[in-house]
């Protein structure tokens, strides 16, 4: 199987690796670059657990060819926290917005994309932003509340 060199920026750091032909970005990030924060749920674009930001826009990493990420700026949950947690992470804890936690990395990235673009979204905009992300545990309300907390500056951090 042929291998393809891929260079990209992952959470602000230049990275290079070899992708196998036809490999998706999710698999490349996890196996190739060792970033296990984006999750593999369905591999079909339906669950959103693999959501990462590509040049600031939310993308389903399982539906993107790894080699198509050449030269692009990728952000994952692993890059959210600095010295302290990201306000979204704090708010998710405060609101108990993660139970099993499998959807959480995707939810966080979808929420980050929204807040980066529109820091004061309405509830409807929050729902729209996470509409491609499934959660089987929380019933969504705590997630929506957490995102709105950050938007309204109520989250600690």
């Amino acid at each position: 199987m042929s291998m393809k060199p891929v260079t990209l920026t992952l959470n602000g750091t230049a990275k290079a690796g070899f992708a196998t032909d036809g490999q998706n970005l999710l698999d490349f990030l996890r196996r190739g670059l060792g970033d296990l924060s984006p999750k593999y749920g369905c591999g079909q674009g339906t669950c959103g657990a693999c959501t990462v930001l590509v040049d600031g826009e939310p993308h389903l990493a399982c539906l993107m060819l790894a080699e198509a990420a050449e030269g692009r700026r990728i952000e994952t949950t692993a890059g959210l926290a600095g010295a302290t947690l990201h306000p979204l992470q704090e708010a998710f804890m405060d609101r108990f917005a993660a139970q099993c936690g499998y959807c959480t990395p995707g939810m966080l990235m979808a929420a980050k994309a929204l807040l980066d673009r529109s820091p004061r979204p309405t509830r409807e905009e929050v729902i729209e932003a996470i509409s491609g992300n499934l959660c089987r545990c929380t019933g969504y309300e705590p997630i929506i509340a957490a995102i709105l907390d950050v938007a309204e500056g109520r989250a600690s951090a």
Partner: peptide, 9 residues
């Protein structure tokens, strides 16, 4: 058509 992450692709 899909959620935001589908629509960008």
């Amino acid at each position: 058509i899909g959620g935001p992450a589908i629509r960008v692709m």
